[in-house]
Design a protein around this nucleic acid. Structure first.
Lengths: 194, 194, 194, 194
DNA sequence: AATGAATGAGAGTTCATTCAT
DNA sequence: GATGAATGAACTCTCATTCAT
């Protein structure tokens, strides 16, 4: 009864470990996360974690990898690239929020990327680069203003989205659509050709 | 020749401790900061830190307090409140960047506020609340749009500024004025009454 | 080949730890006992102590518990209660000395009971209360004088035994039987009905 | 206004230090006594303690010396030696209790003698040796039994007194005279020639 | 003589990591 | 592969002692 496959569904234990680790890293941060607690929550022994990850930092890297993956997946909807611009903001921001909803603790996790080994590939770049790509595309299509610095604008837009997310975390009762509408409105006024 | 006063310049040793602590907290985070290293860098004994702060968390609180103080000082220019709006964005953002420049590691430090005792007063709220107040003022004066949610807008604007700062950190050779201009431009298009 | 039971012989390591701790607490007192030394003497790592005891105070409590246990066991000989009185003194004192001989450092240890967590159950009361019970029994049976205060007499008798033990410690070459005989003689003259 | 004399009344500060130290040593033991607290209680600076005593252990020695002194003084009543024996027990025990009353924490302090430098001279021997001397005197005068071991008897008697004192500490409302009478009665029955 | 800020060795405790079972 | 008892380096914090003022 060998494992049917390796990666796709990963071993049940690996999944349990990653789930438990994600919760702990997101809730307590890197240092305050105890591998003994993660193991207990995952229903495995501490040693079992070490069979899969070289140490605590590698475990975090594993958690981040999976989170990035699911994030990238959610944004990988090719139909967005065909949407013209004011609406495209809506679609984009919507998918970001949706992904963030699925990976609840994403924001908290991303802040830990510096602890992960091979940090740098992880960064918050996944989202940032998507944003940059879309704005570049918009400029190319002459739907967006071209008298702006792409890098700066991407960082600003990204920060705007993060700020909005923080508001949603701080006030969970808010209707996400209102927030999404605010970002889309701001982006449109700010970046669309008149 | 007793010290003329207590606080103004604080004791030389207190300053040295806070400086060293700021560097370490900003560079390594809370847990990875070693009090023994802080002491060594400050040129004092570990015990000396404990004469002034009850523990590591209180030391961080001390660092944050001082940083907030210098930040609040920089933003406390009352002339800003008399500036009409498109220009006011410029002035505001300029003063934020100036303060951030003076307290180099501010961003890194603020992320640690949850470790500090009496956290809550610290938060990133100092800036956030200033922003909110100015936008509210602008709406009242009918210089800014009123069809927006103040809280959401403040968070978004705050995130925008943070994003821009990150870009400046990532690319220190950039001319701050260009970045400031970008934020002012975005804010104006986004928030000013047509 | 799993351990047949838990407690009976306890784990070899637990025994080693308790033995080493007993020596150190008895020889140096509570504060001057270094857990690092205890661990070294027990042939384990410091951390191993913490797997079994929550801290230094709990370790002491463990040592005292075991000592009390062996003490109570030794005095739990029900045949003593059926012995008439002058002889009963002999039997009683003999069993106290025997227990004290088995747990060499008992006296030194008992003095530390205030440091142990859950102190109170420990006290020197184990012996004290046994003495009180026997004297009460003797009075009831009209074998002992009843014109005395039970509490005071019990304390005095207890102190007498302790004093005799101290002499035995100070002069280990003494024949315990001589000392036991002295206490029995004193008790008889003091407490038996003429 | 030079100090009238050196030792007799000692300097006011020395007295304050010894008083404070006695309280702390008796209440908290040797290690848990903080010199900073002693200094604060005595109304002097820590450094001042070090002008008079070489360190913590020497300070304790100073406290014990003074206690012994006052104890010895109280027992130094030569008229006791002329009292014939059953009554002499009364007188002796009375003076011991009186001294103990004056130096409240004596018992607690004596237990610390091992920490004091030059320990050995201090011991609990002051009382013990007095007791031994009186019993020897009684035997010589043929007022007390001679078929007993002097050392053992002295220790037992001493222990008896200590036990009685403990009862008095445990139950402070007791009339000391009742306790003294109990000890005298026991001693008489135990040790006097019929 | 008196002060008390400064010192720094050394304590108890934690927890990532290992490895015999 | 899985386990979890054992390890011990390294942390924060304490406090007796010193010495410039």
């Amino acid at each position: 009864m060998a494992p049917a496959d390796e990666n796709p569904a990963q071993s049940k234990k690996t999944t349990a470990i990653l789930d438990a680790a994600k919760r702990h890293f997101a809730d307590h941060g890197f240092e305050a996360t105890r591998l003994s607690e993660v193991a207990k929550d995952a229903g495995v022994a501490v040693g079992t974690i070490y069979l899969r990850y070289e140490g605590k930092a590698e475990l975090l890297a594993g958690v981040l990898d999976r989170a990035q993956l699911s994030f990238a997946d959610a944004m990988d909807d090719q139909t967005i690239w065909d949407t013209p611009f004011p609406q495209r903001f809506h679609a984009l921001i919507g998918s970001i929020f949706q992904a963030a909803g699925a990976e609840k603790d994403l924001a908290a996790l991303m802040a830990l990327s510096s602890y992960a080994v091979n940090a740098g590939s992880h960064d918050r770049s996944a989202v940032l680069m998507q944003i940059e790509a879309h704005i570049r595309d918009g400029v190319t299509r002459k739907e967006l203003r071209k008298d702006v610095d792409l890098k700066i604008v991407a960082r600003m837009a990204h920060g705007m989205v993060e700020g909005a997310m923080r508001e949603m975390m701080a006030e969970p009762s808010r209707d996400p659509h209102v927030i999404i509408a605010h970002i889309a409105d701001a982006s449109t006024r700010w970046l669309c050709e008149d």
